[in-house]
Write a protein that binds this DNA or RNA. Structure first.
Lengths: 83, 83
DNA sequence: GAGAATTTGTACGTATGTATG
DNA sequence: ACATACATACGTACAAATTCT
């Protein structure tokens, strides 16, 4: 699963949706670290700025927590949207 | 009033604080358009990305509303923080 | 403790697309 | 047709915090 360059949806939105689904599905569990920005940028063939824009969205929605020098982690379920 | 390159505070935060104060003080009134990105960039000697980061913060706080192709406007007082 | 490597944060530049006047 | 203005996306470089050797 990766982004589609032909889809008019912004790449950062597509990437955010992918990661959001990985979290919600349980593929990425609370307190688990997400792939690094450089890993994601290689895996999806996008620029780091695009990765960061996606990460920012996830953080604002409460899915993830980012710590400088450590990485971005899945937030506890309590802070997830809806439930 | 402009940003201070020697201040360790991120430039985008400094710029956001300046514009926030201009709004709260009444220098910029509700529905009034803010200076364009290129104007702010020149006035404060920062890059477009820095201006946009400041604008984004103000928008998320409810101080401004941005419309593609039109500009960024001071939001109605109802949507301002606190009061 | 020192130094290197990793990872996120900030800042800048450029190009292209989209919407408005 | 042209100018203005925001949105997205690419790239680079360096700083700051953490982790590893």
């Amino acid at each position: 699963m990766t982004v589609d360059q032909l889809d008019p949806t912004p790449l950062w939105e597509q990437l955010a949706a992918i990661l959001r689904e990985r979290i919600r599905s349980g593929d990425l569990e609370p307190r688990q670290v997400l792939p690094s920005e450089s890993q994601l940028q290689q895996e999806h063939g996008v620029a780091r700025g695009t990765v960061r824009r996606a990460m920012q969205a996830l953080g604002e929605e409460g899915w993830t927590v980012t710590v400088q020098g450590r990485g971005t982690f899945v937030a506890p379920r309590e802070s997830w949207p809806k439930g």
